[in-house]
Design a protein around this nucleic acid. Structure first.
Lengths: 236, 236
DNA sequence: CTCACTGTTATACGCACGAATAATATATGG
DNA sequence: CCATATATTATTCGTGCGTATAACAGTGAG
């Protein structure tokens, strides 16, 4: 029997590939069901590498979680900053909402991973810390967007008020993101972006359409709701 | 060495005690880390009983999940129906919000359990079905409350509109429930009920205070915010 | 071209797990 | 008060896990 041929990879590539394989496994099989053997098989290597790069399975999983949260929050903020960074505040907030409630962040895999790890927060401070940090970043980013919008509309924007609004909108996003990603089939996911935008306008006391039309494109009026699975669409 | 003495329990008592021990273990140690040996130790019996009552560990865990969801949704609906059932709709909605954002439903254990099991939805249709059912029940209950409130205030209350409102408020509740239960220390949990009530008024387009004061007691004006851990309170 | 380095594989070990089986204690009906 | 049923315990078994160790192979330096 001949030995397996292999390629030497740069340290970071290998680490990243192992973390991604880990996330794939957790999403596919849950934390139980995620074994070193399965992870390394997914990554196309042998189990020894986990020890070599991360010391232990636990350490690998923790790193994978931090990696996931980094991806999620980065993607969320980018969606608001993406264009040559002086969009009006309302447009930024709109993009932020859209970014969180459309693919790729609105994904069954992502929410499944996220939930699985949330379940670990209770018994390992490392997970708690990563979560707390990601949440804080998310909330503060949102708070700044809210402040900008309120200022533009000449509405009261003292600190505590912005914070309260940010907490509420953050809750709204999280909740819609979760239920939308899990997609129980009770309504069409494509409704979520418009729904979130409208709800946010109301929460902030903005005039209707202040954050743009209910359609997906920033300046289009024609609602082009493309969606891969349009099953179980809600009427209206 | 003498054999362990034991008590014969009625079938349902034993089943329930095993399911509760399972939930305790999952909350404390995660799904991995929840072993038959630990569950039965927690319940004060020996591992054989799992086989006897549930056939397998998997089956026990599934039953425990269904049991948990039953508790959560029951408690949520009860909080609105509790009094001799003809409270005005606004008060019912208010109680519903409060019920979901105060103890015992607002609990780190509960959200930890909930998240852990959400992570299973993806790979086992049983969990998906239980979740879907619980979510549907929650959403429809909320939709009826919303409809009642809109009617009382003479606002438009066609079906799709109520549904949209219910989806948004449900998202808000879920998101606040999660983040509040995890309590990242970024704000005081005691703020959540008032925040949710105010946000709901805005989402539905109700006049301020239509759902009652920001305090906890239904008819009191003095805000009596008792909270066990008032650490990290937010200013204002 | 060769050597040393180390990323990578192959193999082995001990342990804890879920499940199965056999033995025993409790409850119940006559 | 005994006979029977069965809830419960005690013990065993096979398996798959995480990890440790040793052998090997790809890589770059001189």
């Amino acid at each position: 029997m001949s030995r397996k041929t292999f390629q030497r990879l740069a340290l970071d590539e290998r680490r990243q590939s192992l973390m991604e394989a880990t996330l794939t496994c957790v999403a596919r099989h849950g934390l139980d069901g995620t074994t070193v053997r399965r992870i390394t098989e997914e990554a196309g290597v042998t189990p020894g590498l986990v020890r070599h790069y991360f010391g232990s399975k636990d350490e690998l999983i923790k790193n994978a979680y931090a990696y996931l949260i980094g991806q999620l929050t980065a993607r969320a903020s980018e969606s608001a900053d993406t264009d040559e960074d002086e969009l009006p505040a309302a447009q930024q907030l709109r993009q932020f909402l859209l970014g969180n409630l459309t693919s790729p962040n609105l994904s069954e895999d992502k929410v499944s991973l996220w939930a699985t790890f949330i379940g670990q927060i209770r018994h390992d401070p490392f997970f708690a810390e990563i979560h707390r940090e990601g949440y804080r970043e998310f909330l503060e980013f949102l708070e700044r967007l809210v402040e900008g919008v309120l200022i533009d509309h000449g509405l009261p924007h003292r600190g505590p008020q912005c914070r309260r609004h940010a907490i509420a909108i953050n809750g709204l996003i999280d909740g819609l993101w979760m239920e939308g990603s899990l997609n129980s089939g009770l309504y069409n996911r494509a409704l979520l972006p418009g729904l979130a935008i409208e709800a946010t306008e109301r929460l902030l006391g903005l005039p209707t359409r202040a954050l743009g039309t209910a359609g997906l494109a920033p300046h289009a009026t024609a609602p082009q709701l493309q969606e891969e699975d349009a099953k179980c669409a809600m009427p209206e």
